[in-house]
Nucleic acid binder design. Structure first.
Lengths: 200, 200
DNA sequence: TGATTTTTTGAGTAATTTATCTAAAATTTG
DNA sequence: CAAATTTTAGATAAATTACTCAAAAAATCA
C-alpha cells in the first residue's frame, strides 16, 4: 500500500477517455487542457503520472491495445469453434470500429497519421498490436482448416491479411463518415470470403 | 498578362508538395513555416494566395482530387475494356498508395483524422471525392458485366464497396509501415475477387 | 521615364499550447 | 497526533505557432 494520499482518479478511466479523444480527433488536435477537462484530473496530476502529453499518449496506446485489441485476439485463440470466432470478430468490428465517427480504431488512426517527432514509439506500438491481430487471424484460420471447417491450402496468410486490411478500411471509412452501406458491404464480403472456403 | 510583379512560384508545384506533406504527417503536424520552406514560397505569399493554413489545405485537397483521383476515375469510365481497367486501377493503387510511408492517400488521411474545427469542409471534400471513386468502381463493374466479362447479379455495389474499403485499408497500412506482404495479399485478393466473377 | 500594380522580403506580433512552479489541502502510515 | 506523500488549484514561464505589417522589387502601362 502506498504511503501518501491516494489518487482520486481511476487511471483506467483516464486512459479510456483519452483513447476516445485521440481516436476521434488525433493526437495534435487534442490539447492537454482538454484532456484534463474530459478526464477530470488536474494538470499537475497528469504530468506527475504520465510525464508529458506524449507519455500519456503512449500509455493510452498501450492501454487501448490491452483492453480493446488483446481480448479480441484472445477470443480468437481461445475459441473452440474457430470459424464462429472469426465471424464474431468481423461482426464485432463492424459494430464498434465501423460505427461512424464515434467508432474507429485508435491504431488505424495512429497508422494513418504517423508520428514524425518520435518516429519509433507510437507508430511502433500501433504496428505491434496490429501485427499481433494479424497473426491471430492467420492462426485461427489455420485452426479452422485443421478442424475441417475451411479448406485452405496456402491461402491462410493471404486471407488473414485481407481481413485485416478490410478492418482497417472499415475503421477509416466509418470514422470518416462514409455511408453505412459501404461498411456493410465490406463486412458482408469479409464474411463471404470465409464462406467461399467452407469445407464441403 | 497580369499587371504587377509576377509570382515566382508555381501554384501546382506548391499544391503538390503541400499534398505530400499533409499526406505524410497530417494537417496539424505540418507547420506553416515548414510549408513555406518546402514549397519555397514566402509566408506572405502563402497568405496572399490562400488566405490561411486551412485555406491552403482545402485547396490542396481539391487539387489532389483533380490530379490524383479524377484521372483514375476517368480511366475507369473511359476504358474500352472495363475489367482490365479495374485491374489496372488496383495494381496502380498498390504501386503508389500502398508504397509504404511515402505513399498513402490524402483522402484516407483526411477521413482517418477528421477535422473538428471546421467539421464540414475538409472532411466533406474527402468524402465527396471518395464517393465519386465509389460510383466509378460500381459503374465499371456493371459495365464489365454488360460486356460479358463478369457475371454479377446484384453484387456490383457490394463488390465496388469492398474494393474501395480495401484500397482505404491498403493506404493506411502502407502509410503506417505495415509489412509489404500484407499489402500484396490484400491486392491479390482484390484481383481475385474479380476473377471469382469472371464469366465462363 | 515615371506611375501603378502586385509580389516578395524580412522582421515582428499576438495568441495558443505545452509545461512548470508554488503553496495549501487531503489522506494515508508510523 | 505527527510525518510523509500525493493531489489540487491557480498562476505563470517558455516555446511554438499562425498570422501581419511596411518597405523594396519587378513587372505593366501611360
Amino acid at each position: 500500500m502506498p504511503r501518501g494520499r491516494p489518487p482520486k482518479f481511476d487511471e483506467t478511466h483516464v486512459l479510456d477517455t483519452a483513447a476516445d479523444l485521440f481516436k476521434r480527433h488525433g493526437y495534435d488536435a487534442v490539447s492537454v487542457a482538454e484532456l484534463c477537462d474530459a478526464t477530470g484530473l488536474a494538470m499537475q496530476s497528469l504530468y506527475n503520472r504520465f510525464g508529458d502529453k506524449a507519455g500519456l499518449y503512449r500509455k493510452t496506446l498501450d492501454h487501448y491495445g490491452k483492453t480493446a485489441n488483446d481480448p479480441q485476439i484472445a477470443a480468437l485463440h481461445a475459441a473452440d469453434d474457430p470459424l464462429a470466432a472469426l465471424q464474431r470478430f468481423i461482426r464485432g468490428w463492424r459494430h464498434h470500429a465501423g460505427a461512424g465517427p464515434d467508432g474507429g480504431c485508435l491504431f488505424a488512426q495512429a497508422l494513418a497519421r504517423g508520428d514524425r517527432l518520435n518516429p519509433d514509439a507510437p507508430d511502433a506500438t500501433a504496428r505491434a498490436y496490429t501485427a499481433r491481430l494479424r497473426k491471430a487471424l492467420a492462426a485461427t484460420l489455420r485452426r479452422a482448416a485443421d478442424h475441417g471447417q475451411l479448406t485452405l491450402d496456402t491461402d491462410a496468410p493471404r486471407l488473414a491479411d485481407t481481413l485485416l486490411t478490410l478492418t482497417l478500411g472499415v475503421a477509416v471509412a466509418g470514422r470518416g463518415g462514409m455511408p453505412a452501406p459501404l461498411i456493410d458491404h465490406a463486412i458482408t464480403t469479409a464474411l463471404g470470403l470465409l464462406d467461399d472456403h467452407a469445407a464441403a
